[in-house]
Amino acid sequence: MVPNNIQMFSPTELSVEAQARSTPLDNIDGIVVLYQPRVFRFLLASLRDHDAAETLTQETFLRAWNARASFREDCSISTWLLRIALNLARDYTRTGRFRFWKRVATTALEASEVAGSLPSDERSAETRLIARQQIQDIWETVGQLSNRQRSIFLLRFMEEMEIPEIATATGLPLGTVKSHLYRAINAVRTQHKGALKERP
C-alpha cells in the first residue's frame, strides 16, 4: 500500500523529472574557471607533457559534463573532477602511444623549466639557486615513482588533499593510499637527505 502523500511517477515522468533535476555542474562555466587550472596542473605534473595535459584537461570536463546527472554530491566537485582526470591519465599512460612518445618526447616537461618558474620574491640569489635545485631534485624523484605512487603523492603535496579525499578520488582503500604515500615519501626523503649532504 502506497501512502497517499507519496507522489507516484510513471517511468516516462520519472525520467523527465530526473532530467529536469538541476545539478551543481549545471553552472559549468563557473566550474571550468574554478577548477580547470587545478585539473591541468595535476595532469601536467602527472604526465609531464603539455599536449597530453591539455587534451586530457578538455576531456575531463567533457566527461564531467556528459556524466553530470550521475554526480551524487558524496564528494566535492574538485575531488570528482580529479577522479575523472586520474582515470584518464591512467588509461593514457597504459597506451603504447604514450610509451613511445615518452621516449622521443618533444613536449616533455623538464625539471629545470618547472624550477625556473619559481616566483621571484625577496629571496637572495643564493637562496633562489638552492631552492631551484631542491625543486629539480624532487621533480626528478617524483618522476621515478610508480604511476600510482606519483598520483597519490601529487594529490597530497601538490593539490593538498587529505588522505580520505585521496582515497575517494583514487577509489582505493585508505590503508592502500597510506601505504603508497609513505613509500613515495620515503623515496623523496632519501633523495632529499642525500642532496643535503652533498651541498656545502
Binding site: 601536467l44 623549466e113 618547472v114 624550477a115 618558474s117 619559481l118 625543486i135 603535496f157 601538490m158 593538498e160
Partner: peptide, 9 residues
Amino acid sequence: FREAGTAYA
C-alpha cells in the same frame, strides 16, 4: 615544489 609547479601550470 608546490609553489613552482603551481606557477608553471
